[in-house]
Simulated assay, not measured.
Amino acid sequence: MAKTKRRGLVPLIIVGVLAILLVVAYFLIDSGVRAFAQDRAEVEISNRMPASVTGDITVTIGGTSVIAQFIAGSFDEIELTAPNLAVDGVPASVHVIAHDVSTNTAKAIGSLTATLDLDQDAVNQLVRASGTAPADAVMTLGDGTVAYTGTVKLFEFNVGYSATATASAVGDTLNFTPTEATVTSGVGDIDATPLVNLILQQAPIAVCVASYLPEGVELSGVDISPERARVTLESSTLMLTAQSLTTLGNCAG
C-alpha cells in the first residue's frame, strides 16, 4: 500500500519539478529578452536622435517581466542614462524616466521626466548662444544662485559690475533674475546707487532651450549648486518615432 502511494506521488513530484524548471526557464528567457530589448532600444533611440546630439545612451527596462509587458502592449518604466551627452556641442549628463511606454511607437509616452546636469562651462555656452546677456558676461554657479559679471555703458564710460541672480524655469526658457548688484569699476566718485538700481531692474537673462529639445518637452524646474545646474524636464506628448525625436522646438518670438 505504501509503495502504491509512493508510486502515485511520483507523477506529482515530476510535474512539480517540471513546473519549477519551466518557471526558471521563463525567467532566464525573460532576462535574455530584457537584455536583447534594452540593447535594441539603445540602438533604435540612438539612430533616431537629431544629428546635433552625440553620446552613448544606456537603456534599462523596469517592471517584472519584459515578455508579459510586451504582450500587454506597454512597458511600465524605461530608464535612459547618458552621462556624457552633447547637444550642439553643449555637454550634459542626462537621466530620463518614462512610464507607460507603448510598444506602438506612434502612441505618446504616458509620462516622461528627465534631468539634465550642466556644468558651469555648459551654462555659459547656453547663455552666450542666447544673446540675451551682456557679451562679456561670465556666469559662476553658486549655492542656489548664479553670480555673473558684465559691463554697462554710462555716458562715455564702460562701467563694470557683478551681480547675483536666482534661476527659474518657465516653459522652454531658463531665466536668471538679478537680485543683488555691485559696481566694480568705472564710475569714480559718482554715486553708483542709480546704476545698481538700473541693473536690478533689467529684464532677466532669458535662455531659451527649445531648439535643443524635442518639441513638446518643457522645463519644469532648475536647481543650482556649485557643481552643476540641474534642469528638470517633462512631457506627456513625446513619441519614440524618428519624427518626434528629431523635430526640435524653436525660440522664435
Rank of each mutant, 00 (worst) to 15 (best):
residue 173 T to R: 14
residue 231 V to W: 08
residue 217 V to Q: 03
residue 199 I to Y: 00
residue 194 P to F: 12
residue 183 V to P: 00
residue 139 M to P: 01
residue 175 N to D: 09
residue 226 P to G: 05
residue 181 A to D: 01
residue 179 T to D: 04
residue 186 G to Q: 10
residue 167 A to D: 08
residue 200 L to Q: 10
residue 231 V to S: 11
residue 209 V to N: 14
residue 190 I to A: 11
residue 193 T to V: 08
residue 218 E to R: 13
residue 161 Y to V: 06
residue 179 T to K: 07
residue 193 T to S: 13
residue 172 D to L: 04
residue 139 M to K: 10
residue 169 A to Q: 09
residue 155 F to A: 10
residue 144 G to N: 08
residue 218 E to A: 15
residue 189 D to E: 09
residue 199 I to P: 00
residue 147 A to Q: 15
residue 198 L to C: 03
residue 166 T to A: 02
residue 221 G to S: 04
residue 187 V to A: 06
residue 139 M to F: 14
residue 217 V to L: 10
residue 161 Y to H: 15
residue 227 E to P: 02
residue 231 V to A: 07
residue 137 A to R: 04
residue 229 A to Y: 08
residue 215 E to H: 09
residue 218 E to Y: 05
residue 153 K to E: 12
residue 140 T to E: 13
residue 151 T to A: 14
residue 185 S to Q: 07
residue 154 L to M: 03
residue 145 T to H: 11
residue 222 V to K: 12
residue 143 D to H: 04
residue 230 R to V: 06
residue 138 V to S: 04
residue 152 V to D: 08
residue 167 A to C: 10
residue 173 T to Y: 03
residue 136 D to K: 04
residue 210 A to K: 05
residue 230 R to S: 12
residue 164 T to C: 01
residue 200 L to F: 07
residue 144 G to D: 02
residue 167 A to N: 14
residue 204 P to D: 14
residue 185 S to D: 10
residue 164 T to E: 09
residue 188 G to P: 07
residue 191 D to P: 01
residue 184 T to V: 05
residue 200 L to E: 05
residue 155 F to M: 07
residue 140 T to F: 02
residue 211 S to F: 00
residue 193 T to M: 11
residue 217 V to I: 12
residue 153 K to S: 07
residue 150 G to I: 01
residue 216 G to V: 11
residue 209 V to H: 06
residue 213 L to K: 10
residue 201 Q to A: 11
residue 224 I to V: 15
residue 229 A to P: 02
residue 199 I to C: 04
residue 188 G to F: 15
residue 165 A to P: 11
residue 196 V to T: 15
residue 194 P to N: 07
residue 192 A to C: 02
residue 171 G to H: 06
residue 205 I to M: 11
residue 187 V to F: 14
residue 155 F to W: 10
residue 143 D to N: 09
residue 207 V to T: 12
residue 211 S to C: 02
residue 172 D to N: 14
residue 176 F to W: 07
residue 165 A to C: 10
residue 221 G to L: 12
residue 196 V to M: 12
residue 185 S to A: 14
residue 204 P to K: 12
residue 228 R to I: 03
residue 184 T to C: 03
residue 142 G to K: 12
residue 226 P to F: 07
residue 164 T to N: 03
residue 158 N to H: 07
residue 188 G to H: 08
residue 177 T to I: 01
residue 157 F to M: 09
residue 225 S to E: 03
residue 217 V to R: 01
residue 149 T to W: 01
residue 218 E to I: 13
residue 201 Q to K: 10
residue 165 A to N: 15
residue 230 R to K: 04
residue 201 Q to P: 01
residue 159 V to A: 05
residue 153 K to A: 06
residue 145 T to E: 14
residue 164 T to I: 03
residue 216 G to I: 11
residue 151 T to H: 12
residue 152 V to H: 09
residue 186 G to C: 03
residue 192 A to Q: 06
residue 195 L to V: 12
residue 148 Y to N: 04
residue 167 A to F: 11
residue 191 D to F: 07
residue 197 N to Q: 15
